[in-house]
Design a protein around this nucleic acid. Structure first.
Length: 816
RNA sequence: GCCGAAGUGGCGGAACAGGCAGACGCGCACGACUCAAAAUCGUGUACCCUCGGGUGUGUGGGUUCGAUUCCCACCUUCGGCACCA
């Protein structure tokens, strides 16, 4: 009796059965190769988004494919559960962040289960659980012990809406807005905790061990921003050294003035009494401005003369020292030598304030440069001119020879600068892992002893409308004793950046309840590193950079091993609303996955998300296109559950054709899984189904080839549509449970082989004829067959071809 | 401004070593079934055409017997960076 395809019945049925049987439990098994597949964990915002489905279900399909290929696969899931939205809910709706977070997690677990993914829920980790953040704190202490965590007063970015500092990476775009809430950040001078990610910059620039998208490596490379150059020491007339960094030491003889950042510590000292008022007015004005105003690249250069002079160490010339806000205190030394002839910014400044412009580089083949005629700086490399002893040095040697000259004379040295800053991890918020440090008036900052971890967050907290951290306001929590002298002391009330928690979650999945350390070393030895990591490209310069740093720092402490934590990375694109805009509640274009699952079933939603897009690109949700997938799934159901026509004798040729299509599809789909090309996996399965429908009418269903096709079909379907595949395999066909424990089918190359091919005949590059020829036809035979073609004869019209190109088993091009 | 990626039918997309452009699907048209509609099934579907053929993968050039694919320039869209010395 044919049944109707009813995903509402079969999907929960199998989800329950798989879970009860522990089908997806990942256990150490040294006899099998392991595969650690990881997809970025969600923030428990309350509801799963269709974007989560888009990111996770193809990852799941691929993890399932790896499992069928003999790998012992771990595919864990958890929650990045600390963070500001929980506190905002607390302030707005008077719900405790813990309550809000854990209610959301409970809901999202349910939603995640409806995907039918092979998550191993026994390995679930939640970063806001004390048993998790115990070890976030412990990692902080290890970094502190190894001098990779330190406290420093520095100008930092502050989000006035979130009431907290942010890492440089969390300030987005030219508008310099908060990564979370989009509010423009302001600059504050604060004492904060930092991690020394800059100790690892050179290693972080090495991507040779990684199979990552080039784009991701490039973004990290740009973010780190390595520049090679020289450090040169100038001296003021009073004898104070001013260090500058330059990428163009070869232009040193063209330095006609110096510029200090307004915050530079020497500004006050070198300013002469006559310039004092002007300098003070200027610096005060600059410091008043927002970063956006100050760092706008199109604004006209401003600055003021200090009255002081410095000596250029290569020619002993006195050059004026200016203060200007186009020099940033946060990069290099906060001071520059200005070479207006060869740097556009210095050029604009010099023109505006009438400072000398002196060309010292003559690029090859260019007109001789003269200061009067220049309309812009000449940044190109070239022969050194007007450069004392180095005059005449060719462009390709200028850089090295100048550095050698500086080192010989003790006035400078080779130097490398980076754009990246140390990672600011202090957050003035409640809902995060406490920074386990104690301040004692006598002993200074002291780490919390490891046996006193975790420092627990207090539950009894209140929020003031000012948005100040409740930890700071708590009456007793911060009061403690100094671990060193036993005297009265105070806890650090700042918590850690949540990126700290997510820098090691892949390690917590190894053993989420282990209490002797952050993870069980036996699990580490078997499962790490992560073999395949998938997620959004927006995490490239934050989470992914932090995670790599974390792994390398821990490796140097002997905690982790190997060069990298995540070997292979793939980024999926983004699903937009049906209007092509980013989905958001305010636009009202949000697609709710629960609704879609309710309407079509999880298998259809999974397959549509795989079929409709290039996974790496994404695109707008299209509710029309899903009907193609609905039809396809229904046609699978019908073909596999309805009786096939009988009576007709099978045709050998059709049997051969079916087997060929089956095995060709298997080859194609195997490759597509490896390459993350999910759309052609589905279209391949659609094509094969169409072929099965075709031969069904031709007596083939009574044959062994038909049974083989059905079996291979369900195995290939299993990773993408796990429920219907299981239902058909186990319940309809009565094959041994579970389809998800079957091996990936073996390709029969003989069956996949074509025995004749369509030879394309071109005349002058245009297709004129097609011939059917046997596989293995020789080049000579191919050529002759093509020339015998009537159509070719007509074009030749008795003439000899000028040239005949033969591509074996593909094409002949006859040039007349 | 700098760096990078991408532009293919009405639409999503395929073409994986430079060798049949448009697989698969949506949509549309026509047909079958039906009193009718939906669902389902079948056929067709890049454009132009005088039915010989001609044109066509953002635009213009180049390399090649042959280019969606390689090279150069430009346009558009998206992503990253942005006074980084």
């Amino acid at each position: 009796m044919a049944r109707i395809y009813n995903p509402k019945e079969i999907e929960p049925k199998w989800q329950t059965r798989w879970e009860a049987d522990g089908l997806y439990r990942a256990r150490i098994d040294p006899s099998r190769p392991k595969h650690y597949a990881l997809t970025m964990l969600p923030y428990p915002s309350g509801n799963l988004h269709i974007g989560h489905w888009y990111a996770m279900t193809p990852s799941d399909a691929r993890a399932r494919f790896m499992r069928m290929n003999g790998y012992n696969v771990m595919f864990p899931m958890g929650f990045d559960a600390f963070g500001l939205p929980a506190e905002n809910a607390a302030i707005q709706r008077n719900i405790h962040p813990k309550e809000w977070t854990y209610a959301n997690i409970a809901n999202m677990r349910k939603q995640l289960r409806s995907m039918g993914a092979m998550f191993d829920w026994e390995r679930e980790a939640v970063s806001s659980d004390p048993e998790y953040y115990h070890w976030s704190e412990w990692f902080f202490l290890q970094l502190y012990k190894h001098d990779l965590a330190y406290r420093r007063r520095a100008p930092v970015d502050w989000c006035p809406k979130c009431n907290t500092t942010l890492a440089r990476e969390q300030v987005i775009g030219e508008e310099r807005v908060c990564e979370r809430c989009g509010t423009p950040v302001i600059r504050k001078d604060l004492e904060q905790w930092f991690f020394r990610i800059t100790n690892y910059v050179d290693e972080l620039l090495d991507f040779s061990q990684l199979d990552w998208p080039e784009k991701a490596a490039l973004m990290q490379t740009h973010w780190i921003g390595r520049s090679e150059g020289a450090e040169v020491v100038f001296h003021t007339q009073q004898g104070d050294p001013i260090e500058v960094f330059t990428t163009r030491p070869d232009t040193l003889w063209g330095a006609t003035f110096m510029v200090l950042a307004p915050e530079h510590p020497l500004v006050e000292k070198i300013t002469t009494p006559g310039q004092k008022d002007a300098v003070e007015v200027y610096t005060r004005e600059v410091l008043r401005q927002t970063d956006i105003q100050r760092e706008a690249t199109d604004k006209e250069k401003t600055g003021v003369f200090t009255g002081g002079y410095a000596v250029n160490p290569v020619n002993d010339e006195l050059i004026p020292i200016w203060v200007a806000d186009y020099v940033l205190m946060t990069y290099g030394t906060g001071a520059i030598m200005a070479v207006p002839a060869h740097d556009q910014r210095d050029f604009e400044f010099a023109r505006k304030f009438g400072l000398e412009i002196r060309p010292v580089i003559q690029p090859e083949g260019a007109e001789p440069i003269s200061a009067e005629n220049m309309t812009e700086a000449i940044p190109a490399w070239g022969k050194m001119i007007n450069s004392g002893p180095l005059t005449g040095t060719p462009g390709d040697q200028a850089f090295e020879r100048t550095i050698a000259y500086l080192e010989e004379h003790g006035t400078g040295k080779r130097s490398v600068n980076y754009r990246i800053r140390d990672w600011l991890i202090s957050r003035q918020r409640y809902w995060g892992a406490p920074i386990p440090m104690i301040f004692c008036q006598e002993c200074g900052w002291q780490p919390v002893p490891e046996d006193q971890l975790p420092v627990l967050l207090p539950d009894d907290v209140e929020w003031l409308p000012t948005g100040e951290s409740p930890l700071k306001l708590h009456p007793t929590w911060k009061k403690t004793t100094c671990p060193n002298c036993g005297g009265e002391a105070e806890r650090e009330t700042d918590t850690m950046d949540t990126f700290m928690c997510s820098s090691w979650y892949h390690l917590r999945y190894l053993s989420p309840h282990y209490d002797q350390g952050p993870f069980d070393p036996r699990e580490y030895d078997y499962w790490m590193p992560v073999d395949t990591y998938t997620g959004g490209a927006e995490h490239t310069t934050m989470h992914l950079l932090y995670t790599r740093f974390f792994h390398k720092a821990l490796r140097d402490m002997g905690i982790t091993r190997g060069p990298e934590p995540m070997l292979q990375l793939r980024n999926q694109g983004q699903i937009l609303g049906p209007d092509g805009q980013r989905m958001s509640k305010s636009r009202g274009n949000v697609i709710d996955p629960d609704e879609q699952v309710d309407r079509y079933g999880a298998d259809v939603v999974r397959c549509y998300l795989m079929f409709g897009y290039r996974w790496s690109e994404g695109g707008p949700w299209n509710s029309d296109n899903i009907s193609g997938v609905v039809r396809w799934i229904n046609r699978i159901w019908s073909l596999f559950t309805e009786p096939s026509p009988t009576g007709q004798a099978p045709d050998e040729k059709e049997i051969r054709k079916l087997r060929r299509k089956v095995h060709q599809t298997l080859i194609q789909i195997t490759r597509d899984f490896k390459e993350f090309e999910f759309n052609t996996i589905i279209s391949g399965l659609m094509e094969l189904l169409n072929e099965m429908y075709r031969v069904r009418e031709l007596g083939v269903p009574a044959t062994a080839a038909w049974s083989e096709a059905q079996e291979i079909y369900l195995k290939m379907l299993a990773p993408v549509a796990p429920h219907i595949a299981e239902e058909l395999w186990t319940d309809v066909f009565g094959k041994p449970y579970s389809v998800h424990q079957q091996s990936w089918p073996e390709v029969d190359l003989e069956a996949a082989r074509e025995d004749e091919i369509t030879l394309v005949i071109q005349v002058n590059g245009k297709v004129r004829d097609r011939l059917t020829v046997p596989v293995g036809i020789s080049e000579v035979e191919t050529r002759e067959a093509a020339l015998r073609s009537e159509i070719v004869q007509k074009y030749l019209n008795g003439r000899q071809p000028r040239k005949v190109i033969v591509v074996p088993e593909k094409l002949v091009n006859i040039v007349i």
